[in-house]
Amino acid sequence: MSLKIYFAGSIRAGRADAHIYAKIVDILKKYGSVLTEHVGNPNMTEKGDVLLTDKEIHDRDVDWLKQSDVLVAEVTQVSLGVGYEIGRAVAMGKKTLCLYRPQPDKRLSAMVRGSADITVVDYSEVQVESILESYFKTFIR
């Protein structure tokens, strides 16, 4: 059985980290099927998926979240959508991993870092692969 992984990263709130999302998605593919692979597409703009209405995007993404076994979110770029997805995942009882690159002038929300239901890992880009490897070793039996 292959894991179904929901990857969350900022789209409309900014695509400055799209290259990092692409790297994370590529690594996640080692561990299962990434239902939201498009989030890592470096060609996607802040407009997102323009062929669908907001309702269609919401309903599709919530359906993918329901199907998923785990949510992995890159949370450095502040995003209401990613926060919403994290909240929904926690409410559904999904395993939830948030990756955050510490910033000198910003702090991660206490609602994420303070939750006992969310694993938060501070990281630098060079650490992504080893962090995900460690996380999925404990996840997969």
Rank of each mutant, 00 (worst) to 15 (best):
D26N: 12
V25H: 10
D105L: 02
R88H: 12
F139N: 00
I118P: 05
Y31E: 10
Q127W: 14
I5S: 02
T36H: 06
R107A: 14
L132V: 09
K95D: 03
D54Y: 03
A18T: 03
V126R: 04
S33Q: 10
R88Q: 15
A8G: 15
V34A: 10
I131A: 10
R113E: 13
L3S: 09
M111V: 02
Y123T: 00
I11N: 07
F136R: 04
A89Q: 00
I11W: 14
R101C: 02
V78I: 05
Q67S: 10
K106D: 02
D54M: 05
L52H: 11
H19A: 13
Y84K: 00
P42H: 05
A13F: 15
K106E: 11
M44I: 14
V128N: 09
L132N: 13
K23G: 10
S68F: 10
L108A: 07
Q127G: 09
V62I: 15
V78H: 10
E46P: 00
M111K: 01
R12E: 09
S33A: 04
V34E: 08
M92F: 14
E46N: 03
G83R: 01
D17E: 15
A8R: 06
L71V: 15
I118L: 06
F7V: 11
V34D: 09
G32N: 04
G81W: 01
D69E: 06
K95H: 05
Y135H: 13
D17F: 15
R12N: 12
S115W: 07
V120K: 05
D69A: 02
R88T: 13
V50S: 05
A91K: 06
V121R: 12
S124M: 12
R12M: 03
Y6M: 07
E37M: 01
Y6N: 02
G83S: 03
M92T: 06
E56P: 00
E125P: 05
L97V: 06
F136Y: 13
V126H: 12
Q67Y: 11
K23F: 07
V75P: 05
I11Y: 12
V120M: 10
R88E: 14
A89R: 00
Y84N: 06
R101K: 15
H58T: 01
G14Q: 14
R101H: 13
V75K: 02
K66A: 11
L3M: 14
Y6S: 05
A91S: 10
D17S: 11
T138D: 15
N41T: 07
H38R: 12
P42N: 04
L52F: 14
D49L: 14
A89S: 10
L51C: 03
D54S: 06
Y21G: 01
D117N: 04
A16W: 03
R88Y: 15
G40V: 11
F7E: 07
Q67A: 12
A116Y: 09
V70L: 12
K30P: 01
N41E: 11
H19C: 02
S10P: 12
V78Y: 13
D54A: 12
T119W: 01
N41V: 10
A18I: 01
V128F: 12
I5W: 08
Y123L: 13
L35M: 11
M111S: 03
K23Q: 15
V126G: 03
A73S: 04
L35P: 02
